[in-house]
């Protein structure tokens, strides 16, 4: 398949200020290249991410959604990421019921020092979603 006709997924990232966004900055400073399909918005904590925001992203045309927070025990807000984990676990079940592959939603813990992990996660997740193909859920 030529690169021009290759499916380019659209992915929304919700990344926390303290860890994953800092990791993205570190990847930048270290010039660790990755594919550009994820556009992220920065929240203070991954626990600000409402399952509804994720459903809105899928509804709005996202082929995948990535949520990035601090490692368990390292949350800037002590336990925010545990809340996030519970909510994402619940949402993964709901996605199955809705006929959306749970693979399209990814929760990752990426600390401020893990620029390389941010890079790897981006590439790996983008490739996974590319394999899955378009979700085609966009509601006009």
């Amino acid at each position: 398949m030529s690169s021009s006709s290759r499916f380019e997924p659209k992915i929304v990232g919700f990344i926390c200020k303290w860890c994953t966004s800092a990791a993205a900055d570190l990847a930048g400073v270290s010039r660790l290249k990755y594919q550009p399909n994820v556009v992220s918005l920065r929240v203070m904590c991954s626990s600000r991410v409402d399952p509804e925001h994720i459903l809105q992203a899928f509804k709005g045309g996202a082929d995948g959604v990535l949520v990035g927070g601090c490692h368990p025990g390292d949350c800037h807000y002590q336990v925010g990421n545990y809340q996030t984990r519970k909510r994402i676990m619940m949402l993964l079940e709901i996605l199955k019921d809705m006929g959306i592959s749970p693979t399209r939603l990814r929760l990752e813990w990426i600390s401020a020092s893990e620029g390389a992990k941010f890079q790897d996660t981006m590439n790996e997740f983008i490739n996974t979603i590319r394999e899955l193909g378009p979700l085609g859920l966009k509601v006009k």
Partner: peptide, 18 residues
């Protein structure tokens, strides 16, 4: 709601990204 991180704002941000 969180001031300047309201649900309406995040929703619009997601829409603008996509």
């Amino acid at each position: 709601q969180q001031l300047n991180f309201a649900d309406t704002q995040i929703k619009e941000m997601v829409r603008a990204i996509l």
